[in-house]
Design a protein around this nucleic acid. Structure first.
Lengths: 250, 250
DNA sequence: TTCCGGATCAATGTATACACGTACTTCATC
DNA sequence: GATGAAGTACGTGTATACATTGATCCGGAA
């Protein structure tokens, strides 16, 4: 079998997991649809054992739901589920920011976060933000949130934040690309970046409550974007996983 | 093979998972120790396939850690890890209480929670609380917390609360039994029960912030108990999983 | 004596065969 | 014609054999 180089390095289990996740998030596997192991075996090229392993992991990830009599279906999410997932992620990031502020962070440890913020500054202060700039923003924003979470220095919390951010529409950068063509895009990025600035300031001054509150509010920017995207369902292709959200119309 | 009746009903995977979890929480498998699949096969009586399944689930549960080169080790927790896990659980329960308060709960839906609270009242208002009463409290307290979380009517949140409560020392009822022989035991139960009363009141009056704050504080009772238990390591047998906590002395 | 390299062994990753349970379809009877 | 029961087929749960990778130990050379 002619395999791509990138595929030969990783285990069959991981390959199957990545492939199946793609199929789910792209909408090729519809919400509510049962996933047949044999069908998954054909699709992924791996045998049943790694496929079953991948299915279990995708269930823990939240993309699949176990059927009591055996097997899995693709999970469907209501708009409320997604909004709650975003609020949840914001709450956990808020806790991380509070931990960082209350426990104190050395200026040395704060350096990477500040550097990341400055890089984002360079992007959002342009007059016109290109699509490539949005793409860079996604990467930098993900790094900012990861660095911030790590400042809590709490492995259990970091673990939970990661799990809460696993669903693409709940992740910190989930709705950035979808908003790229909305009229208020630039304004939103400026506000988000100001919140980044505020949370660093709060952590430096050991203002735990302030740090927590601003991260919660920060997540609500994503909620706003979700509502906008669902209202005019135009840029669905920019957010993998949007196919899993069943709206009232469906 | 002579099997117990209870074992014949469930799958080998679940049996292996339960057995391995017992071994880990009881301390038979030491923190940091590598878990051999073959050894686990001998212990559980299941074959390698369900054992591997169980190991993956226990990893997601947080009791095991994956080794990059393959296999798993038993996870070790610092005192800080445990305190953070409790704070995390309290934060999520606080969010659930806030959701319930803000979104409103009908008096009909609130009935089970109030009934549960009254049952607990019957226990804690005795002059002397027997060990059996403590045991009943554990059950009722677990039910109270489960009912409360469900009032959020948010599947994603309920899911995360359950996961955060999976570790025995992070669960709402984790430290109840350990405190049963401490002098301040009765006082602690009275305080905890008052917090139960307050959160119901807050939800009824749609006071979201109050409901959230009281649940966070409620979890901190568990933190207090943890510190007491670790100070005089006497009642270790009353909390499965205490063997996973490595203190400075180890 | 120490370090590097190769070989052997063990443990995990993978594949497949088999068994059991469930669901669906068909036939018979009411 | 409809309903119930039985049989068949499909799909998951389990077991085991095989392959592959990583670790350890021993030997030789510097």
């Amino acid at each position: 079998m002619a395999e791509r180089d990138s595929d030969r390095c990783v285990s069959q289990t991981v390959r199957a997991q990545l492939r199946l996740r793609d199929l789910i998030l792209s909408g090729d596997l519809r919400p509510g649809e049962r996933i047949s192991e044999l069908q998954a075996v054909e699709t992924t090229g791996a045998s049943r054992t790694p496929v079953r392993m991948a299915l279990v992991r995708l269930e823990e990830e939240g993309l699949l739901e176990a059927i009591p009599s055996g097997g899995f279906t693709v999970k469907a999410f209501s708009e409320r589920d997604v909004l709650d997932s975003i609020e949840l992620r914001g709450t956990l990031e808020g806790l991380a920011a509070r931990f960082a502020a209350e426990r104190g962070v050395s200026s040395r440890d704060l350096e990477p976060l500040k550097g990341c913020r400055e890089e984002i500054d360079g992007l959002v202060q342009q007059d016109r933000i290109s699509i490539e700039a949005f793409s860079s923003y996604v990467t930098l924003n993900a790094r900012f949130h990861a660095l911030l979470t790590e400042l809590s220095r709490s492995p259990p919390l970091i673990r939970q934040v990661d799990r809460a951010s696993a669903l693409p529409f709940a992740s910190p950068s989930g709705f950035v690309m979808t908003q790229s063509e909305l009229p208020q895009a630039h304004e939103t990025l400026l506000i988000a970046q100001d919140q980044h600035r505020v949370v660093i300031d709060a952590i430096e001054n050991r203002e735990g409550t302030r740090a927590e509150a601003i991260m919660r509010e920060h997540a609500r920017l994503a909620s706003r974007n979700l509502r906008l995207v669902l209202k005019n369902k135009t840029h669905s292709d920019l957010l993998p996983g949007l196919a899993l959200i069943r709206t009232a119309g469906d």
